[in-house]
Simulated scan of single mutants.
Amino acid sequence: MSDRSRPSRAGFVAFLGLLVALVAGYLNDCFAGLGLSPDAGQAVPAGEPAKPSAKPGDRVRVVVQGEQCRVGGDGPLRPCDAVCAEQAAGATVEIDATAGAQRAVDALRTCVQARGAKAQVVSE
């Protein structure tokens, strides 16, 4: 007969499952980069032609989620460089970096500034 009873083994297995679930939730940004998140299927292919969404003097809000970006609060997730290509010189781009990966936010800010637009990073 084993040293452990069945209830203690079941408790250990339940604890182990909970631990795995917590680690998976914590690493959710990593899963988005691998295409394993629920939002990963909504990404627009990078090959689409860029249509200018901002004119000089406009204020545009870009939300960074993981490694992807969306214009406004409800647009589809797309590569951040495609969003950057749509910004016009003289526009102001407000970058919501609350849920974004730091390297994606930095790359978007640098790209927007290189295009002659003003970048304002907002993170809470």
Rank of each mutant, 00 (worst) to 15 (best):
A14G: 03
F15L: 14
F15R: 07
L16W: 08
L16C: 03
L18R: 02
L19N: 11
V20T: 06
A21Q: 11
L22F: 10
L22T: 13
V23M: 12
A24K: 03
A24H: 02
G25Q: 08
Y26S: 11
L27T: 10
N28S: 14
N28C: 12
D29Q: 12
D29C: 02
D29G: 13
D29Y: 02
C30T: 04
C30Y: 10
A32M: 05
A32T: 08
L34E: 11
L34N: 13
L36Y: 15
S37K: 13
A40L: 10
A40G: 05
G41W: 05
Q42Y: 14
A43G: 05
A43D: 04
V44D: 04
V44I: 10
P45A: 05
E48D: 11
E48P: 03
P49S: 10
A50D: 01
K51M: 08
P52Y: 07
S53R: 02
S53M: 04
A54M: 07
A54Y: 00
K55L: 05
K55H: 03
P56F: 03
P56C: 06
P56L: 04
G57L: 01
G57M: 02
G57E: 03
D58C: 06
R59K: 12
R59I: 09
V60Y: 05
V60F: 01
R61K: 08
V62M: 05
V62W: 11
V63E: 10
V63P: 10
V63L: 13
V64W: 06
G66C: 03
G66K: 04
G66E: 08
Q68Y: 08
Q68R: 13
C69I: 04
R70K: 13
R70Y: 01
V71T: 09
G72S: 12
G72P: 09
G73E: 08
D74A: 13
D74N: 11
L77M: 13
L77I: 14
R78K: 14
P79C: 15
P79N: 15
P79T: 14
P79L: 15
P79V: 14
P79M: 15
A82Q: 15
A82E: 15
V83H: 15
A85F: 13
A85M: 14
Q87P: 06
Q87E: 15
Q87Y: 06
A88T: 07
A88S: 14
A89H: 07
G90N: 02
A91Y: 01
T92V: 02
V93K: 03
E94N: 00
D96V: 03
D96N: 07
A99I: 01
G100W: 00
A101M: 04
A101S: 03
A101P: 01
A104Y: 03
V105H: 01
V105N: 00
D106F: 09
R109F: 06
R109K: 14
T110W: 11
T110I: 12
C111F: 08
C111R: 09
C111P: 04
C111W: 13
C111Q: 07
A114H: 06
A114M: 04
G116C: 07
A117R: 10
A117Y: 11
A117I: 13
